[in-house]
Design a binder for these strands. Structure first.
Lengths: 253, 253
DNA sequence: CTTGTGATATTGTCAGGACATAGTCACGGG
DNA sequence: CCCGTGACTATGTCCTGACAATATCACAAG
């Protein structure tokens, strides 16, 4: 390989803030992340060894190790014992994260649009009560939205929330993602479990997505939990497959 | 909540092996994992604090922390500063892992079957050469398989590998997953990037999957890299959506 | 009754050191 | 020319110790 030197742009790490609330390992890992994604450190490049990095940054080895580990978990770096740490070959992609579609679109430079199709308080049936962790017949909020990007419909999103969120307004939902609205109310989503599948478009989905009836849609069923392990949201989404897909990076342990 | 005591079945951790090659943190985390999945430690239960766990197991706090962190990353545990560590509520699901469909099926107790549809050495065209990281026109191996479980077709898998794997036999592929075969040759897959989408079945896929033409299939495009960052495999798979879906657990950082 | 304050519990972050393990590579023996 | 061996390098694992940040709870002040 032509590129066999070690890369470590010290200048990127000159002004670490030891007093602020941002952990040192996070400062290092996020700058390193940017340097890799920005091409400052090219694919295949070898990093300096952990000990000398730690010495030059004035940090301990565990701190440097933790920063590097973050990027290994993201699939940006690969470690090999006895060899060193390398930037992975191949282009870097955006992984599936615990963020809403709205934020995904915003981050990729598109202008998301939302139409609230339904916004009602209903009584939970058996299946719903089970999944949401509420009593059968309890009030729950059902929200159905059409999401588009640059004027083209992308997804139909159906979300069901516990009754305490009945006061979320349609206006809030049209100017921000659901998760943003929830965060604004102090609800932090910690864990989500989702199942990705496919099926034929049925009901009014085809029309809302601008495709033909019976054509494929990509579906996601999601259950989101907050810090305390309570169910915050149950989602039932379908996406137009030519406009959206899920990317993941898998790292062997 | 009725269940507010702290759970920590000391007896599960009585015989940790300090001499063998298995790291202590891994021994702890895997037993804890089993205890949670097996129901010995129920959902919502609080764990003892890290310091006393460490003291009772005769380990240091970082080691215990690392064991717990493994399970937090898997979405089995939730930590809260000032509060403690809890088992998550809700049933535990199997995440998308860096394993092949064959192993997934085996692990869930089904009997996978494979029919090798094609197994040929071809010349790489531009797009393929780019993705595999080989020269245009170089020999590559194309493998196309039909995978079924309990006699029902589940997926059509097309994989393309560098020419050095030309000697993999159809027989090997019919009795094991591709990744198992590669591991047997000393090739360890470290990172894979994949895109999950949906489209209509075309070509002979409908027939091979036992569905109607034009009906939806769930698709995956995967590129897998080895330790050194070389591309080991490019996959182009489609699944019967009523037989297969992808489950993921997302954890906020 | 409400509010603020301080004590307590628990995880989060960081330091520094020690030894184990697994690659690489040069060198020498066959 | 091939092969084993040992030096060297770098990550992997584990320890001890310390302080910071945050949530809970009891209790006193208003």
């Amino acid at each position: 390989m032509a590129d066999d030197r070690t890369y470590w742009p010290d200048e990127l790490f000159a002004d670490l803030d030891r007093t602020g609330p941002v952990p040192l390992y996070f400062q290092v890992s996020s700058r390193l992340d940017a340097a890799i994604r920005g091409g400052t450190i090219p694919p295949g490049a070898r990093l300096d060894n952990e000990i000398s990095i730690a010495a030059r940054l004035g940090l301990s080895r565990p701190t440097v190790r933790r920063a590097i580990q973050e990027l290994v978990d993201k699939g940006l770096l690969v470690r090999r014992r006895g060899i060193g740490t390398q930037v992975v070959q191949g282009q870097v992609t955006r992984p599936v994260e615990l963020s809403s579609l709205y934020e995904d679109l915003e981050n990729t430079g598109h202008s998301p649009g939302t139409v609230v199709l339904e916004h009602a308080v209903i009584a939970a049936d058996d299946a719903l009560a089970e999944r949401l962790g509420v009593d059968v017949g309890a009030d729950v909020v059902r929200i159905r939205r059409q999401r588009s990007t640059d004027g083209v419909p992308v997804a139909v999103l159906e979300n069901i929330l516990p009754g305490e969120f009945a006061d979320i307004t349609a206006e809030q939902l049209e100017t921000a993602g659901l998760y943003q609205v929830l965060r604004g109310r102090g609800v932090a989503i910690r864990i989500a479990k989702q199942k990705i599948g496919a099926r034929r478009a049925h009901g009014d989905e085809a029309e809302l997505l601008g495709i033909e009836r019976g054509h494929p849609v990509l579906t996601v069923e999601r259950i989101a939990f907050d810090n305390a392990g309570r169910v915050v949201e149950v989602g039932h989404h379908c996406y137009r497959p030519d406009m959206y897909s899920f990317e993941t990076t898998l790292v062997a342990k």
